[in-house]
């Protein structure tokens, strides 16, 4: 899972940073009066910043194209699901949802086909987060009153998927859930 890779990457960077600082700290205790800091500090700083800038440039150029706004942008979705979030429920429907008389229906989606969720809110901000059957977060968008966020996704595994709210929406926030099937 992407989250495991992220955690490992973070822990490695955190460990390297800690080792560097611990090494620097103990270097200041060395009983050697001839040592008075780093020589050519400006040049070393320049190289450090250059390496940092290049690394971040590579990260940005690799990750930005993978942003959800650009994924499947050129494809036509095979199914459109309208989502209206409200305190404390999600209504999902293949038809437009009337804000004055909102009604949802049970949803079954095809696997390996592009689905577009058109997500809005009828009251406050909510999150529309899709969890797979192992309860891992696979994608999300926000549900905002007055706006429709379009989230595109291809489900590659059949099964039961759960929707959780990830934006604080009131005291019922943690019980705001829904489900749909992919087959």
């Amino acid at each position: 899972m992407q989250q495991d890779s992220i955690l490992h990457f973070f822990l490695i960077l955190a460990a390297i940073s800690t080792i560097v600082f611990v090494f620097v700290f103990f270097s200041s205790w060395q009983d050697d009066t001839n040592n008075e800091g780093v020589k050519n500090a400006l040049r070393k700083r320049f190289w450090f910043i250059l390496i940092l800038l290049v690394s971040l440039g590579i990260f940005a150029s690799v990750t930005i194209p993978k942003s959800p706004y650009f994924l499947f942008a050129d494809e036509v979705p095979s199914k459109i699901i309208h989502v209206s979030a409200m305190q404390y429920a999600f209504l999902l429907s293949e038809k437009n949802i009337d804000a004055k008389n909102p009604v949802g229906e049970s949803i079954i989606l095809p696997s390996n086909r592009l689905v577009e969720f058109r997500v809005t809110s009828l009251d406050v901000n909510h999150g529309f987060a899709i969890y797979n059957s192992e309860m891992q977060l696979i994608t999300q968008t926000q549900a905002m009153p007055g706006y429709v966020n379009s989230l595109r996704y291809k489900f590659d595994k059949p099964g039961k998927y759960q929707v959780l709210c990830l934006e604080l929406c009131g005291v019922g926030h943690p019980v705001m859930q829904s489900t749909f099937k992919v087959q």
């Binding site: 955190a14 959800p68 994608t139 999300q140």
Partner: peptide, 20 residues
Amino acid sequence: IGGLGAVIDATISNNVVLHN
């Protein structure tokens, strides 16, 4: 270290599985 966690989260393709 907090900054590292923040930069990872500030990457849009990571944020989609980390946000909130």
